[in-house]
Write a protein that binds this DNA or RNA. Structure first.
Lengths: 128, 128
DNA sequence: CTTTACATTCCAGTTAGTGGAGACTTTATA
DNA sequence: TATAAAGTCTCCACTAACTGGAATGTAAAG
């Protein structure tokens, strides 16, 4: 199938699918006459896999690792679990950061009148 | 003072301070003989302000807005409060996303043996 | 006078794509 | 069959907010 069909089936944009070909993540065969990329169902399965992994916040490089584990039928689940635990840890870090940011900002907002006068505890804090 | 002194006082890197000059956020005077950037205490205060706002997750463009409000002694606190509330809302969105990611991933991890056998519910989910 | 430290500009790379131009192929319509 | 429209190709530029490095220039110290 052509790229737009593969894109539709994997719910990715054509541009993204082409990008994944460029970075050698999912390299389809080529139609010799037209030069068009020619995707198999297997290629689409890989695209789907990557799309889902990306939505799970795995980076492109992590997707590459997962994809190679996915394709290796003799792999152990240990490595996959390790990657996933690392991802959870990094998400936890971001959660912590954002939680504390949220707290600080909402504290400041609560102190700010938000009226037409110039006095502003938010700016005061930022300039300390 | 020269750029490295300004960088030290504002706890930013020299590269970053130079970058803020390039994008016309904090444009110092120049020493005519050497061409070196010459920072005043006021410039350092601005750098500090930006550094803090960046740590609060405000984008460069938002920093620009905040900085102009900061410098306008007749500003109303309304606008600052509006920007800050919008920032809180966007942080809340990210928190939500990351929370649900975390839940899904930790569910998968709990289902995965993490041993030397190939069976892996994480990969199974990603390939669905 | 030379070494060293600090400064300058400019170019490239980072992440993960997205947008657009210009050219070519395929498909649909008149 | 001619033409128009749709799909695809490659290549380049842009996004955010810096960071790293090269080549070059200036200032301070010994």
């Amino acid at each position: 199938m052509n790229i737009s069909q593969a894109a539709k089936l994997s719910r990715l944009s054509v541009k993204t699918v082409r990008y994944y070909a460029d970075i050698k993540m999912v390299e389809p065969a080529r139609n010799i006459r037209s030069g068009y990329r020619s995707y198999t169902n297997d290629d689409v399965a890989k695209l789907n896999f990557i799309g889902k992994a990306r939505r799970f916040n795995f980076s492109i490089e992590e997707c590459r690792e997962l994809l190679s584990l996915y394709q290796n039928k003799n792999r152990s689940s240990k490595e996959v679990k390790r990657l996933t635990l690392a991802k959870i840890a990094s998400i936890d870090e971001k959660l912590k950061e954002f939680h504390s940011l949220r707290n600080e900002l909402s504290h400041l907002v609560n102190c700010c009148n938000g009226d037409d006068r110039p006095s502003c505890p938010i700016l005061d804090e930022l300039s300390k």
